[in-house]
């Protein structure tokens, strides 16, 4: 009963709040809608994860993957932009399915920001990494069989991630899509975006096989 009530709060009150917000915020309604959509679209994933049957070991492995991606930001601290997060999310998704991929991505964003600082970017990061994981889970069979595809996926998701985050930045600042600002933002962050995409590819190439082996081993040995 309590749970139904809380879902009700999510499903009724939040859309209501958005409609109200859109009406109230006038000029900035698109920025508000974008932020609200980012937060809202995470919710069904979380709810289905909550409802789904999940083996305890799977839960802990997702937790460990989240911790590993977060700690990766620390282990490779001396290379700016060189972070294993996307690779870890994609690999988790390949071996544990789309839903686990989403959770790993979204929770990594949320948790690592407890250490690096939460901000208005948190929901967007959650959604972006979550979706990268989710899509990788759906494409698992193809990604696992072709290295080229896997690398392309890593590179594209790295670039898309930056492009989407910048998009929100522009809409928020200008209340409309200001192309010249968008180009300026994309260009100024281009070195990081490229490094990020390259690091995704490197991490995927280096980590996929050994990590896959380790996951398969645990799966076999403990029957997950």
């Amino acid at each position: 009963m309590k749970k139904i009530l809380s879902y009700l709060i999510f499903l009724v009150c939040i859309p209501l709040a958005i409609a109200l917000g859109m009406a109230v915020f006038g000029d900035r309604q698109y920025a508000f809608a974008a932020a609200a959509v980012a937060v809202l679209s995470c919710i069904p994933f979380f709810i289905s994860f909550e409802k789904g049957e999940n083996n305890t070991t799977r839960l802990v492995i997702i937790a460990v993957m989240v911790a590993l991606s977060a700690i990766g930001r620390l282990v490779f601290y001396y290379v700016p932009g060189f972070k294993p997060v996307t690779a870890m999310v994609v690999i988790t998704a390949i071996y544990f399915g789309a839903e686990a991929g989403f959770m790993t991505g979204a929770l990594t964003a949320l948790i690592s920001n407890f250490f690096f600082g939460q901000g208005m970017w948190t929901p967007f990061q959650m959604l972006a990494w979550g979706l990268i994981g989710f899509a990788a889970g759906l494409l698992a069979k193809k990604l696992i069989s072709s290295k080229v595809l896997l690398c392309t996926y890593g590179a594209v998701s790295g670039i898309a991630y930056s492009l989407i985050l910048d998009l929100f930045g522009v809409i928020w600042a200008d209340t409309y899509f200001n192309l010249s600002r968008y180009i300026a933002m994309v260009v100024s962050s281009a070195p990081f975006t490229i490094l990020y995409a390259v690091s995704n590819v490197i991490f995927l190439l280096v980590l996929q096989k050994p990590l896959g082996k380790k996951i398969e081993r645990v799966k076999d040995k403990y029957g997950i």
Binding site: S6, F46, L59, A63, I111, F114
Partner: peptide, 14 residues
């Protein structure tokens, strides 16, 4: 309170 399972995943990750 709302999502105990993701919450325990987070707690374990932390």
């Amino acid at each position: 309170r709302v999502l105990p399972k993701p919450a325990i995943v987070m707690s374990t990750a932390l």
